[in-house]
Nucleic acid binder design. Sequence first.
DNA 1: CGCGGCGTTGATCTCTGTCAATACTTGTGG
DNA 2: CCACAAGTATTGACAGAGATCAACGCCGCG
Lengths: 232, 232
Amino acid sequence: MDPSDWRIVRSTPLLGAVSQEIAQSLVGNQPVSVYRKGETLFRQGEAADAFFVVLGGWIKLYRVTPDGNEAVVGVYRRGETFAEAAMFLGGRYPVSAEVVTDSRLLRVDGRVLRRRIMEQPELALSMLASASYHLKALVEQIEHIKLLSAPQRLADFLVRLASAREGGATIEMPYEKALIANRLGMKPESLSRALAKLRPLGVSVDREQVSIVDVAVLVQFVESGDRGEEGF
Amino acid sequence: MDPSDWRIVRSTPLLGAVSQEIAQSLVGNQPVSVYRKGETLFRQGEAADAFFVVLGGWIKLYRVTPDGNEAVVGVYRRGETFAEAAMFLGGRYPVSAEVVTDSRLLRVDGRVLRRRIMEQPELALSMLASASYHLKALVEQIEHIKLLSAPQRLADFLVRLASAREGGATIEMPYEKALIANRLGMKPESLSRALAKLRPLGVSVDREQVSIVDVAVLVQFVESGDRGEEGF
DNA sequence: CGCGGCGTTGATCTCTGTCAATACTTGTGG
DNA sequence: CCACAAGTATTGACAGAGATCAACGCCGCG
């Protein structure tokens, strides 16, 4: 783990809020693991004995139903942690995790973590903050699926990627369209059509590159209850 | 708080796993609060200074959009706790809470809780388990909205109420249909129709009473990908 | 060059939301 | 005790969003 990796670690809500020593003792001498696209980190129902810090790449968490369909419930990237809380729920992962682009991860052992929590209650507060963060993300996702149309969910997704609320932006689709579609609760075909519907709002696509004339227009589109009939 | 209330408190994942003294110190001398249907406990964005234990009645947690629509993200009942984790995320509730039937609650102060966590790491582990539990519930909800049809979601809801996986059951709709519908991500009209579609599968409704001939049939219906065209 | 994966586009169908009309339930006041 | 009003649930007709099925274009790769 080089200094820039360490900076990423310290930028996470979980490992950034605790003291240098605690963070060091949890991840300090862990080797960085490199995974290739398609690899499975763990499956739902397996014993949860570790959580992960993403140093680079993208990881998806998903659930599979008895008949084989899958629902993506989260996609994580550099600077995020996942599966921290799973270790406390009967010790089983409630979801499966798969690497969707070549990735670099830190794997943090659960037993060490538990021991540290008993010794250092401040770490528990960080863990709780982290769990709250995930809780909030899930709540927002439910809100979006229930109340927003497919084009609105896509617009919201783009706004978040642009990490700005106004002005122009050019962003790159971070992973496959099929995965974005699932993450947003729609089919790939619907994603294409949603993208087409955003064109009148100043969104143009060329391969992976998406240009947005004015992000504020998209923000407005997401927040207005209407379905954008006056935009062209 | 009488002995039966205390039994409920000790049946929660959060306060049941810690020592008698810790539980006692958190909720022991709290008065039981009584709320009437329609009262608001807190609104999203407010400072989160307490969490709640439900002794009786039903509470809904929901998000409201700028244009006034609401999405219910959870409904809690006797023996459940809610909003425990909110106090650790910038100290703001990410949702609003409203009493949907007359209820009896315990309100646990956040400052006391934080102090106890620092003193008693085992409490921290219980908090984390509790947060994990909520996390899992939300993940399942997302899975259901994304992958199941309205009748399937209703069937799943009924199965959970019946708290059995096979045999017959008679259950009572716990709160208004409109709330059930929102909770399941549909409109009240769709709920009526979903109920009608379950009739061939052995579900009959009379007022609040729902009778199920064989719960296993509903379980099967939820788990099969198909939309139930062979059920009568 | 041909193949395979991925994305787009088109035609069609199904489900759910919307709007409106109609019971049913409950509470109120004459 | 009954008439009436208000809130709640059901039913019907219709429209729209998104899924499905199928065809095609694009691009990278052997």
